[in-house]
Write a protein that binds this DNA or RNA. Structure first.
Length: 123
DNA sequence: AACTTGACTTCAA
DNA sequence: ATTGAAGCCAAGT
């Protein structure tokens, strides 16, 4: 049987793929959606080691404060910013206005919805 | 077993 | 709005 962490990773990939083009969400939100709240840091790890990064819209996952998480002087940072801008997301000083581009996931509105959704995916 | 390391988050100044 | 400290947790040393 696959490890818990492996399950986590699959859930992360699934939810990241759900983020609509031109919108963003946070590591923490993905962690929550995946059913593992408080594991925001592991979401980044899962993305970084994703076997098929090419098919994952990883650029749509940013910090809870709307900022690109990579170091501003890194290549990753520049690439992520470019990819986001290419799909219409406005990034100023490495920050996205969440009021305009935050993905309204089904689980963010209510905790009840989150529990229901969790059941669907964990049986 | 102890300590460090992140593509994190929250909260209090 | 910004900043820093504390909390977080699996992995790697």
């Amino acid at each position: 049987m696959s490890s818990n962490m492996e399950h986590f990773r699959q859930q992360v990939y699934f939810w990241v793929k759900q983020i609509p083009k031109g919108q963003v969400t946070s590591y923490g939100t993905i962690a929550k959606l995946a059913g593992f709240p408080r594991h925001a840091r592991h979401v980044s790890k899962a993305l970084g080691s994703a076997p098929d990064r090419q098919r994952l819209p990883w650029q749509r996952v940013i910090g809870a404060d709307g900022k690109i998480a990579f170091s501003p002087d890194s290549d990753h940072y520049a690439i992520q910013q470019k990819l986001l801008q290419q799909e219409g997301v406005i990034v100023k000083k490495g920050k996205v206005d969440l009021k305009l581009f935050a993905w309204r996931s089904p689980l963010e509105s209510s905790d009840e919805a989150l529990d229901i959704r969790a059941e669907e995916f964990f049986r």
